[in-house]
């Protein structure tokens, strides 16, 4: 049993490392360093990183980027709405920082199965820090609504120091107009 658990921890860390690579990629592009991957059946099916500066759209968080990749791909492949919903309900998200209130709400709307995150998000966190949108009671009314808010399983603190140290580098980097650091690019997925 214990061997099994250790194996799982190693697996979770491996997935989070891939998310951290994405966050590093964001850092190299002068973006707030948050990255994520989406896993289905133990396969990485999408990756995303923050692109808020590049797009000038402050909602282009890593989670949104990764989800959009899947939506586009699945729609191109002719998946029906029901198929798409079903696929997302089997997906697990690994993200380096606790999803913000917007992303947590979006993940609930999407009906994702599970989320693992790195460090907590004290300012905007939507999975416990400020609001707890991952618990199913928090969304939707208790009235005769057909569709209630959906919760998802959520575990924080996965490789949090690594996630925080990326934030630290970002803020030490200071002025976003400063010359790009020429550090080696993390391999992307």
């Amino acid at each position: 049993m214990e061997a099994c658990e250790t194996e799982e921890i190693i697996y979770i860390d491996e997935c989070m490392k891939l998310a951290l690579e994405q966050a590093n990629l964001a850092l190299n592009n002068l973006e707030v360093p948050v990255g994520c991957v989406i896993i289905e059946d133990e396969k990485v099916i999408a990756a995303g990183r923050n692109r808020t500066n590049e797009t000038r759209n402050a909602t282009r968080h890593a989670e949104m980027e990764a989800i959009d990749i899947l939506l586009e791909q699945w729609q191109r492949n002719g998946l029906s709405k029901a198929d798409i919903a079903k696929r997302f309900s089997k997906c697990t998200l690994y993200v380096t920082c606790e999803p913000c209130i917007m992303c947590a709400a979006a993940l609930s709307i999407l009906g994702i199965k599970e989320v693992y995150y790195g460090c907590a998000n004290d300012k905007f966190g939507g999975c416990g820090s400020i609001l707890a949108l991952h618990t199913s009671e928090s969304g939707g009314s208790t009235r005769d609504e057909v569709s209630q808010g959906r919760g998802f399983k959520c575990t924080g603190g996965i490789m949090a120091p690594e996630a925080i140290s990326l934030f630290r580098s970002f803020y030490e980097q200071g002025n976003p107009n400063a010359p790009k650091p020429h550090r080696p690019l993390a391999p992307s997925i």
């Binding site: 808020t52 759209n57 402050a58 909602t59 913000c100 917007m102 709400a105 709307i109 609001l131 969304g139």
Partner: peptide, 13 residues
Amino acid sequence: PCIMCAMALVHQR
């Protein structure tokens, strides 16, 4: 707006 949209509007200032 719903919570997703309301927070998006915070992000976008």
